[in-house]
Design a protein around this nucleic acid. Sequence first.
RNA 1: GGCGGUAUAGCUCAGUUGGUUAGAGCAGCGGAAUCAUAAUCCGCGUGUCCGGGGUUCAAGUCCCUGUACCGCCA
Length: 570
Amino acid sequence: MARHLITSAIPYINGIKHLGNLVGSQLPADLFARYQRGRGNEVLFLCATDEHGTPAELAAAKAGKPIADYCTEMHDVQAKIADGFRLSFDHFGRSSSPENHALTQHFAGVLADRGLIREVVENQMYSKADGRFLPDRYIEGTCPNCGFESARGDQCDNCTKQLDPVDLLNPHSTISGSTDLEMRETKHLYLCQSQMKDELEAWIDSKADWPILTTSIAKKWLNDGDGLKDRGITRDLDWGIPVKKGTEDWPGMEGKVFYVWFDAPIEYIACAKEWVDTGKGTDWQRWWRTDKGADDVRYTQFMGKDNVPFHTLSFPATILGSGEPWKLVDYIKSFNYLNYDGGQFSTSRGRGVFMDQALEILPADYWRWWLLSHAPESSDAEFTWENFQQSVNKDLADVLGNFVSRVTKFCRSKFGEKVPSGGTFGETEQALIEELTTRTRAYEAHMEAMEVRKSAQELRAIWVAGNEYLQNAAPWSTFKEDPDKAAAQIRLALSLIRFYAVLSAPFIPDAKDALLTAMQTDNDAWPDDVPAALAALPPGHAFTVPDVTFRKITDAEREDWQERFAGTRD
RNA sequence: GGCGGUAUAGCUCAGUUGGUUAGAGCAGCGGAAUCAUAAUCCGCGUGUCCGGGGUUCAAGUCCCUGUACCGCCA
């Protein structure tokens, strides 16, 4: 039995994610996790919320809530929505957990002991009114080059010149608007990634089977300019993991926290510990420590392309640099972006569909099917309501849903609500079984390779094969001359419904439950043996005719939604 | 500005290491069937493979260049 450790990029705590975020990490990760479980493999599927950093602080302030309370609330909101989408995390953790505090401090301590952390004194803009240092993006002023009045501390959006906050004329805090700013000295810790460039590059080079999107981004960071740069891993903030060297205080670093990008990936590990501490599991090191049983684990990460540098370089630098036997990622599956109706999803403008809204208008399966069958794998993809309506109506309602409907209703009217007996399989049936065997093996190969779109395509072809068969076999005609033959045909078709439920489960888990319930079976075994699987429901086995499995989206609904989610235009 | 990605049928997309008449689904047109959620099944594609050069016996596929769109720049 293979063992799969699977993590999805952890969504930021601030706000509700849109469908583009969902399809870029959590959803394909869930597809893979469900598939591997379906095949009988052992899976640990982890995700969490990424809770630290300035945006969370500001969002909490805006909501008038203490930051810790805000994060707890938002974590619950995101957990509920994830549940609504049937994301089957074994644990949905929090980067602010005590487990992550301890582990992050541990890594910092070990890295320091190994000479991979250095202290750097730098000047940063301090706002007296806000009582805090300001990250570059929270300082605005007039651009010294072009006179643009809303240039940010790191760059002018008008002339695109790179800036330093000290260059700005009339700088002010975007948090309070205060102009009472001054440069102050502050000391920070840097992770000496540059020392590890060769080791990281050799590791990346050994991953010949990774998607080009993944390795090309990693290579770029490794070799851009002077090569991999050291990276600040601390910040002058209140909300975060206090800087400590293991369990010891870190002289000179009092009142500082680790930078969110240092502690967030460590949460992948801490999350497994949370999984145990909350009583869901018993041994987390078996998944993460190669010296404690994790050497046979295959670890796959899912993420959007914006997250690739941190997962190919920064986090591996932390792991490798520690010199401890932690599990390194084996495969990184990265995704491009999903665009919305000719433009980008926009949180600030309310443009596009967000996860909570999606579930308000349609059940999870509809979204899961469309998003996965159109996953932005090789390039950015495009969501349009017309395409969504057409795909869902055709694939789910007409091809799959109607198949279930026509088979169960025909059987009920001719043989009653039980699997009919009599008759034997002929050439048409053998041909179907052969085709389904070939297609099932192809589907498995695509799923193993995480070829999401191709998997969906093959699955759809498997559904279509059922309709083709019915058309050829025509039990409604057969029944008139040879009821036994019709019985054999319908018996096969009824088993096919269970077969479809099991194969489709990674994509549309709710439909799987509904179909197995209708077929009155809890046999959800994967069809390793296709001929046997197509005889899974024995003669006399009772079933019920299910309600409409997938309803259609009407034109009126589509137009309504199109209008509703268009957002405010510029 | 630097870097990366994309550009293939009305729409969404496949096209493996260059190799016969460039493919799929949807939409459209025609037909069959009537068990079913007016669902299903079969048949039908003359597409400057973004433009221009080049390499090659052979280029959607490799190289150069131009254009357009998109993204990233800690």
